[in-house]
């Protein structure tokens, strides 16, 4: 099944400078695993060393944050739109 992945500007250099690409996988975990096989240099921006979802990456399936859909187990269906957006965070300390 193919879903569309929308890539933010800051991640494009690690993903062939594409703004959107077709991805395969039944879950977000499968999609990201295949993505990092194709674009190994993107791995550090997508996943932690232990393979969990990077703390400072927001992943959405259509309008929903995957953290509320099971994280890497979040299901992906044909024609879903997956959006990656780096978290925007910081602080005074």
């Amino acid at each position: 099944m193919a879903a569309v992945l929308r890539v933010p500007t800051v991640l494009r250099p690690a993903m062939g400078n594409q703004s959107a690409l077709e991805v395969e996988g039944a879950t977000i975990g499968e999609v990201l695993a295949r993505l990092t096989e194709t674009y190994p240099s993107a791995r550090a921006q997508l996943l932690n060393e232990d393979g969990s979802l990077h703390r400072f990456l927001n992943v959405y399936v259509n309008d929903d944050d995957v953290r509320y859909l099971g994280g890497l187990d979040a299901p992906v269906s044909d024609r879903d739109e997956i959006t990656l957006l780096p978290a925007v965070a910081g602080g005074s300390h």
Binding site: P8, N58, Y60, D63, D65, T83, L85, A87, V88, A89, G90, G91, S92, H93
Partner: peptide, 14 residues
């Protein structure tokens, strides 16, 4: 001491 933009605001705004 720290902030994080609401991920829903982030998606909606983009």
């Amino acid at each position: 001491r720290v902030y994080e933009i609401d991920p829903r605001v982030l998606l909606r705004t983009f």
